[in-house]
Computed example of a mutant assay.
Amino acid sequence: MKTRTRHQHLQRIDRVVALLQAAVEQGNELPELATLAAAAHLSPFHFHRIYRALAGETVGNTVARLRLLRALQLLAEPDGRVTEAALAVGYETPQAFARAFRQAFDTTPSDMRRQGVRLQQEIERLRQPSPGEGVAFSPLKVEVVSVEPFRLVAIRHVGDPVGLGQTYGRLFQWMAERGALEQMAGIYGVPHDDPRDVPREHCAFECALALAGEGPETVGEVHPLQLGGGLWARARHVGSYDHLDDFTDHFIADWLSDSGYTLRDAWPFRHFHDDPEETPEAVLRADIYLPVEPG
């Protein structure tokens, strides 16, 4: 990503952070999604995905960090009180504030206030997102391709992504019972939610199989699905499928912002080339497709 382009995009993220920080400091309701997206000149459809990729943390993480930062700043004042700090940053009770505080700093607000040096160090640390460990990826090789619409059958999995294999298993069984496995033309997935943004038990994911030909009539939990249409940026990930969310962040942060393309309001999807039950994790292949249009 060119330095100038990256700077422009980070400025957009800074505007969002400024809105969130103002709300936290003034004790106001957090801005709605549309307001945050407009401040960043981003589509609400992809706002959380792009924010996370560029900011290095989710919006929820940013809010939690800013609340703790403001609490520390209030505690650092000569007459700062724990109860006032708790209520000022959005905690309903001092007890809830104390629990969150201990989880973050492994000490109590009162003890932190007596540790002047550490308090100032924590204030400086919380001014920026934590870098995190992250995952190292090879340099991206991205193609922008036109994808004709294609048909699939799918089961929507709602719950912990750990259970995706079982849902795909039900879909394969459904195809086998109808003698349609020979019509399978590919294994696909559409993540509607990211477990870093949404509680894992509420995450929705379309487990899908592409069809060659008409395919069997869908009934029950199996429903028809269509993907493709228009331009798509495609990059291949090799390795554990557990890292696909991190890889998508890498894709957006290191390619999209300097590509001359923007994201269209369509779901990204994944094309899985290998079965994790039969292929070593280190060589699993999956193509990530982002819906794009000239920017």
Score class of each variant (00 low, 15 high):
residue 7 H to V: 13
residue 9 H to D: 02
residue 22 A to M: 06
residue 27 G to I: 06
residue 30 L to H: 12
residue 32 E to R: 10
residue 46 H to E: 10
residue 46 H to I: 13
residue 49 R to M: 14
residue 51 Y to N: 02
residue 54 L to I: 12
residue 58 T to M: 11
residue 69 L to N: 13
residue 72 L to S: 08
residue 73 Q to W: 04
residue 75 L to F: 11
residue 77 E to Y: 13
residue 78 P to F: 09
residue 81 R to L: 06
residue 87 L to F: 13
residue 88 A to T: 01
residue 89 V to W: 05
residue 93 T to I: 05
residue 107 T to D: 14
residue 109 P to C: 02
residue 111 D to A: 04
residue 111 D to G: 01
residue 113 R to T: 05
residue 113 R to F: 07
residue 116 G to K: 15
residue 122 E to R: 12
residue 123 I to Q: 08
residue 127 R to M: 04
residue 130 S to G: 10
residue 135 V to W: 08
residue 143 E to L: 09
residue 150 F to T: 07
residue 151 R to E: 00
residue 155 I to E: 03
residue 156 R to G: 08
residue 162 V to P: 01
residue 166 Q to A: 07
residue 172 F to D: 01
residue 184 M to A: 15
residue 187 I to C: 15
residue 194 D to N: 13
residue 197 D to S: 14
residue 204 A to E: 10
residue 208 A to S: 11
residue 223 H to K: 13
residue 224 P to H: 00
residue 233 A to F: 14
residue 236 R to H: 09
residue 241 Y to P: 03
residue 242 D to H: 15
residue 245 D to W: 02
residue 250 H to C: 11
residue 252 I to W: 14
residue 256 L to T: 12
residue 257 S to Q: 12
residue 273 H to C: 12
residue 275 D to P: 09
residue 275 D to Y: 02
residue 284 L to N: 03
residue 285 R to S: 07
residue 286 A to R: 00
residue 292 V to H: 10
